[in-house]
Design a protein around this nucleic acid. Structure first.
Lengths: 186, 186, 186, 186
DNA sequence: CATGAATGAGACTTCATTCAT
DNA sequence: AATGAATGAAGTCTCATTCAT
């Protein structure tokens, strides 16, 4: 019984499982079973579980970045951009069962400082930080202030995501959204 | 080779390891080996790995709460209390190698909604949230405003902890601290 | 279903299998199945397959050395000792299906220079060499000659064992025996 | 990147690897990777790993036999022929890192009595044995004595090769050479 | 002639847990 | 109260081989 596109099916399945149960909570066996692949097919495409995780994080990052790039280019005010982002975050958290940030969750488990995973986490987070700074820069001409505000919003965003996960509640996002918008409006 | 307080030694050892490597990254074997206990002794005190984790989280919570209670009773201004808390957070993160919040990290791995672990995470987080609300209440007579500000600071605190872990950097704590203090000062 | 003496059963079973099929031809699964043990029981006693192999080689060496020690102390002439050793070798090879020397066979597969296996192979072989030198020393007062003759007999012994295995025939042992005895007699 | 003679490249690569790491220590994947071939190309030329091993042993045998045939025809005394052979053995073992005899090593792993590999091992060994008998026959007119001496030298040769491998030392070859020459000289 | 994709079986190892003493 | 021995299930990864193109 041969099935094509094993690679893609593996990545999709693993992505879903990693997100739902965390990197350490998912085994290769479960992945290949649910993807309908043979074990050796898995290792043909991904030399290790870790490398699969990296591929997953990369794809998550790409989607995330596309969304943010689009949002920045969208014809609307900085405040609207910010609000839109938090609204999207709310939708994401609710639809995903309050599982939080894939990057933070993965980092909580695989803390090998030198691994490609750790690198990806950092660069993704810096990318989000840059996004908030960019929005801020649209609002404030003072560079320092723009950066400071962007960083603050970044922290709010992160805390909201984390605590929505911990408390299985959406209010942290609402609180963060309101505070962030106020910061941007002055 | 005297071995007093096997129970305590297990808890201490497990706590250290859970914190350093995450709940899922530590095995029973490693715990009992480093604690110098027999396996059966372990299961005499803790019926399962999960229950040991709960005991650890409980002890972490108790220490944390003691510190916060003391801080609230301390003879100083609300702003000083807040600053002191963030300073303590900074010390903790740096000395612990930026391993973040034990509760959030554990929650990222064990997402069983019904388990005692999930309950503890939630109640711990609510306890911290209450602490920030309490500080806020010392500053603002308007209850709603006090709660709103407390919640915002709570989100900042959480985001700072999380991103310090992800980025292996202390700046998120500095940013959060400054923002929190401003919020409290108005 | 608990069974006692797992450790011993594992060693015996593995010894038999390693001897029959070679180190690389035997898997943990086969060993534990034929030993009637659980896999985890195996790893409780032997941290790795390699360590089990070392334990096996050690036991083989101990038996071998006991036999040689006895033989040296036995009240008979050097030539008789030598003949007796080759007769024993013949019996061993025939009863074992011409599987040759456990040490040489293992060395043909695991040639990690630094491993404990390699060390054991060398020390075992040196021990045999010492045995032949000791027999020689009983015959020749000239030390140099005794050593040289011992070494030659050692080489004959090794070649006989190896070629009996390769050719599935006993004549190499007969040839070696005759040559060795002549060397010793002068 | 031209890739001529895939078949030959596979054979060369496999030969090198089989020799260095033993038959069981080399996988198809490693072979085709280092040979720069596709997996299916491999199975086009060699229906199985075992058949590749046979091809390798055959080529080794051919080289070996060519050398011995030449040596027999060379214009020099039997003793010189013999010495030359042992000198060649010494060079081979040293340059090859004391990996011993490809045939004996393979036989230590694949003990399927009916396989083509076992047949090749036996015929190769008989061929070497015949070579030493032939040298002996040049020296001794008595057929029986010639055969007996040839067989003894064969055993010495085998033991020297084996123990040089086990002990990672060249002295067994020197000892065997000296003994063999003496035997031939009488 | 050559190949990339897929595979079932099995490799070695560790998991959290329970048993009899 | 404490322990060493045993366990089933699952972990990640590799094996030699075959298929469709």
């Amino acid at each position: 019984m041969k099935k094509p596109n094993a690679r893609e099916r593996i990545l999709e399945t693993a992505g879903r499982l990693f997100f739902e149960k965390g990197y350490s909570g998912v085994g290769i066996n479960e992945i290949i079973e649910k993807a309908g692949t043979a074990k050796a097919s898995f290792y043909q495409y991904y030399p290790s579980k870790e490398s699969l995780c990296e591929a997953w994080l990369r794809s998550v990052h790409d989607n995330s970045e596309d969304f943010r790039t689009e949002l920045l280019q969208k014809c609307c005010s900085p405040v609207e951009k910010l609000a839109c982002y938090f609204d999207q975050l709310e939708k994401f958290l609710i639809s995903g069962g309050f599982r939080g940030c894939p990057y933070s969750n993965t980092g909580a488990v695989s803390d090998d400082y030198c691994s490609g995973i750790a690198e990806q986490i950092q660069s993704h987070k810096e990318s989000i930080r840059g996004f908030f700074r960019a929005i801020s820069a649209l609002q404030f001409s003072d560079h320092e202030r723009a950066d400071e505000t962007g960083d603050r919003i970044f922290i709010l965003y992160s805390g909201a995501t984390s605590e929505a996960q911990n408390l299985k509640a959406i209010w942290p996002v609402h609180v963060a959204r309101k505070a962030a918008v106020e910061m941007l409006k002055n």
